[in-house]
Design a protein around this nucleic acid. Structure first.
Length: 802
RNA sequence: GCGGAUGUGGCGGAACUGGCAGACGCGCCAGACUUAGGAUCUGGUGGGAGACCGUGCAGGUUCGAUUCCUGUCAUCCGCACCA
């Protein structure tokens, strides 16, 4: 009888051995085929590991382990995305240096991850807060600056009232701070910005060449938000000035019955002397500015606006004079901040026109009464009331009108993007210092590269200030410096970089993490890039994933990165919810601590359970009973050693099943179908139990297949059974396709599509034989005239009778 | 509103290019072994007494539909006045 399955002793034992043997180190042997598997490195929070973390880590650990056994040189690294607000806030509250807080948290995270038996190459661990690391983050920033892609701009930013920090658009969710949930207001501040908009087209096109799950691509495309249309110049009546609008429907130009400019539009200020109701407009502008973006869209149902007295515009295609309105449904930040309103064919314009009683003129026929509803379909409909466009389809009309506008010089085809530039400044201490010096004479001057890293100074207080300055601003010794350009007095930039900086290139550093001459050697980058498989959360689709693609593409253009795209394949995992189906949170009291599971059931059980819990890409509810079920499975695997039979091969009755199993498990591991792979192993385990024995050859294969999911127990059983060497060094089993099919199959026999009997037949049975056998099996269940006989070999026999 | 996804037993979930719906696990029921079992093992388990009925709902295509098509409802997740 086997000794009891003592998961604690055994898991500790193997983790130690793997460490000593450096079992999972990626080698620098560039002649071998490589495989780069990547999971998002965690933010080492004070809470420690969450049961959500192991899901993606285990999934790619399975892939990494399998690939190693298939002969690949595998890079599966881990590190720490350790700059960030929670650490800084904790440091402030507890008066501990954020560096110390980070060290402690990293220590804890690492111990927890280690205890789960992941095959990370710990020699390549990176930490974004390490000066040896952020030196290169700063270096990339300087490259961006020199390429004109980093600039400082006075602009309204999203200001979190609680964190006292500027946020990127992506970090504002429903008008509140993504992190702390406090209201976000607009504040004008001078900010470092990155010109991600210059890369909009490239980031969009690049999606065509990568293997990302569809919803990630769709989200990125929507976020980039490319639209094609035209700019049209509307002269202001009696002035030598034009209002330029952007429209995706230049074909409806004849239907414009008024114009709308956003409240902040500069033309208003320019002509304020002539605007009869300037006071009213000013009041409206103030009211709009007070509203947060959130309120603005919340109140979207009810349109508001003010007509501009004393200014009108001329529709350039028909010389009609139309009124100009101000409304906050037109945004200064998109297009030109002014639109032509075609209420007949745009829902928002229609609502506005109805409210303020403005005329609605149909120019595309095909819908219902445009007085009752806007007709916005672009696929069907012919132009009417539109002069030379009459009778054309929408698509043709667009082409023709753009040609006309360009010919007359009153408009032009134009592409727009929703994507905004990236607000790159944070008024915080715990981030990478921006390596720029401001000199009265020379302006913003980059630090020379050989002065990097520009290290964070020791400060007494990390408290943010109410005036919006970083805590670094109070460090006079540090702030006051000399200009690298003219040598005169200058001041350092005191804002730091956002957390997204360090994570925008970390996958490059893993390839050569100790290099102090470059962010990584050219050889290492060329060998390892692109990342073959990157898994991470959906929540990072428009943040980290887009930002890192941008940096990578930029580095590619600079000749630093070897490939235009960083990640060949991107998948996303679903969330792990609490037992009650709600998101795990302290306040809901449904948090499960992975340490407890590892302690009580073992790392292998936790790994198996998280993979078995359900479809990888969907969210799943935790179930303690499910955990027990997986533990029971491993217990039964453990007991197989008691019924081990001689024989290095597969016995006749198991031969087909073994080949099917190898095939299924191998492909399921590649296709995110871990749950069915485990189910298949459970099934064959039941078969072995029932048979009362398992041959040494069968067990050998079974253990290797299970190893990526449950590495400790399989390694132990491998040793107990004396197969020799370590299981992690074995070659991945191969299946023989010919042996995956039985030579006889049980076929369902149907009458009129309904299952009535089954029959055993050779797989290659001919139709006559099959039909005859099927009829025999049906016996007297078959009555009436047979109209049709269907036989799909290996699948079904169907007799159609009346 | 736009975009994406998901609806299958008591529960989590399977089902290849249309071919025996409910694999596997949980739970439950019965039995065995036990002083005992919340341990382990064995058997059963969609509904219905039955012919039959069953994959959100209503149609359609097909010899045959969880799978394809049309419409519709519900839930979840993004984005949200982007002209």
């Amino acid at each position: 009888m086997a000794a009891p399955y003592n998961h604690r002793a055994l898991e500790e034992k193997w983790q130690k051995i793997w460490d000593e043997e450096k079992a999972f180190a990626a080698t620098d042997d560039y002649s071998k085929p490589k495989y780069y598997a990547l999971v998002e490195f965690p933010y080492p929070s004070g809470q420690g590991l969450h049961v959500g973390h192991p899901r993606p880590y285990t999934a790619l650990d399975i892939v990494a382990r399998k690939r190693r056994m298939q002969g690949y040189n595998v890079l599966y690294p881990m590190g720490w995305d350790a700059f960030g607000l929670p650490t800084e806030n904790y440091a402030i509250k507890n008066k501990i240096h954020p560096k110390v807080v980070t060290e402690n948290n990293v220590k804890r995270f690492k111990a927890q991850l280690h205890g789960l038996g992941y095959s990370f190459d710990w020699d390549r661990e990176v930490n974004t807060t390490d000066p040896g690391y952020y030196r290169w983050t700063q270096w990339i920033f300087l490259k961006l600056f020199k390429a004109g892609l980093a600039y400082k701009s006075e602009m309204p930013i999203n200001w979190c009232t609680s964190c006292k920090v500027g946020l990127a658009n992506e970090e504002v969710v429903n008008g509140v701070c993504e992190r702390c949930g406090s209201p976000v207001v607009r504040r004008v501040k001078s900010q470092w910005m990155l010109k991600i908009t210059d890369y909009a087209e490239k980031l969009l096109d690049g999606l065509n060449d990568v293997d990302y799950i569809e919803r990630v691509k769709v989200s990125q495309r929507n976020w980039i938000g490319k639209s094609q249309g035209a700019e049209v110049d509307f002269p202001i009546a009696g002035k030598d000035e034009k209002l330029t609008v952007y429209t995706t429907r230049p074909d409806t130009l004849f239907g414009a019955t008024y114009m709308v400019v956003s409240p902040e539009h500069p033309a208003l200020d320019k002509y304020k002397e002539e605007i009869g109701n300037w006071d009213e407009i000013l009041a409206y502008r103030e009211q709009a500015a007070r509203k947060s973006d959130f309120e603005r869209s919340e109140l979207a149902k009810e349109k508001t606006g003010v007509q501009v007295d004393g200014l009108t515009a001329i529709d350039p295609v028909n010389d009609k004079e139309i009124p100009i309105w101000v409304s906050d449904y037109v945004l200064m930040s998109y297009g030109t901040g002014a639109i032509m309103a075609v209420p007949a064919h745009d829902t928002r314009d229609w609502e506005f026109a109805k409210k303020f009683n403005l005329p609605i003129i149909e120019v595309v026929a095909g819908g219902e009464d445009v007085q009752k509803e806007a007709y916005t379909d672009v696929a069907t409909g012919k132009l009417v009331n539109s002069g030379f466009l009459d009778g054309l389809e929408v698509a043709e009309a667009k082409k023709k009108i753009i040609g006309f506008l360009e010919e007359k010089g009153i408009g032009r085809g134009k592409t727009n993007f929703k994507l905004r530039d990236w607000v790159f400044s944070r008024q915080r201490y715990w981030g990478e210092p921006i390596p720029i010096v401001h000199c009265e004479k020379c302006g913003y001057v980059p630090l020379p590269e050989d002065e990097l890293p520009l290290e964070l100074p020791e400060v007494d207080s990390y408290m943010p200030t109410d005036n919006g300055e970083s805590p670094l601003a109070a460090m006079e010794d540090w702030v006051n410096t000399s200009c690298p350009c003219c040598g005169g007095p200058a001041k350092r930039e005191t804002d730091t970089m956002p957390q997204w900086a360090g994570s925008s290139w970390y996958f490059l550093r893993y390839t050569d993490p100790k290099n102090d001459k470059a962010l990584a050697s050219r050889e290492a980058l060329e060998y390892w890039l692109p990342v073959d498989w990157y898994n991470g959360g959906m929540e990072h689709t428009t943040l980290h994933l887009l930002y890192s693609r941008f940096w990578h593409r930029f580095l590619y253009d600079q000749g630093v990165a070897p490939t235009p795209e960083p990640y060949q394949k991107r998948t996303s995992h679903g969330m792990i919810l609490g037992e009650n189906g709600e998101k795990m949170s302290k306040s809901r009291g449904n948090v499960v601590n992975p340490d407890d599971i590892v302690m009580d059931y073992g790392a292998d059980t936790l790994r198996t359970y998280e993979m078995f819990i359900g479809a990888f890409d969907l969210s799943a509810s935790w179930s303690e009973n499910g955990v027990k079920g997986c533990r029971r499975f491993l217990e039964r695997v453990w007991k197989l050693q008691d019924i081990l039979a001689d024989g290095d091969g597969y016995r006749a009755e198991f031969e087909t099943k073994m080949h099917q199993l190898i095939k299924k498990v191998s492909s399921d591991y590649e296709n995110l179908k871990y749950n069915t792979a485990i189910a298949a192993m459970m099934t064959i385990l039941n078969d072995f139990s029932k048979a009362g024995s398992i041959s040494r050859g069968e067990f050998r294969t079974f253990l290797i297949l299970l190893n990526p999911v449950a590495p400790h127990i399989t390694e132990e059983l491998w040793e107990i059974c004396g197969y020799g060497g370590r299981i992690y060094q074995q070659e991945w089993p191969r299946h023989d396709e010919a042996k995956t099919v039985e030579n006889t199959v049980e076929l369902a026999v149907q009458i009129n599509g309904k299952m009535r009997a089954t029959v055993k037949l050779p797989v290659d049975a001919q139709k006559d034989e099959a039909i005859a056998a099927g009829k025999a099996a049906l016996g007297d269940k078959l009555s009436g005239n047979v109209i049709k006989e269907i036989y799909v070999p290996g699948r079904i026999i169907n007799i159609v009778a009346k």
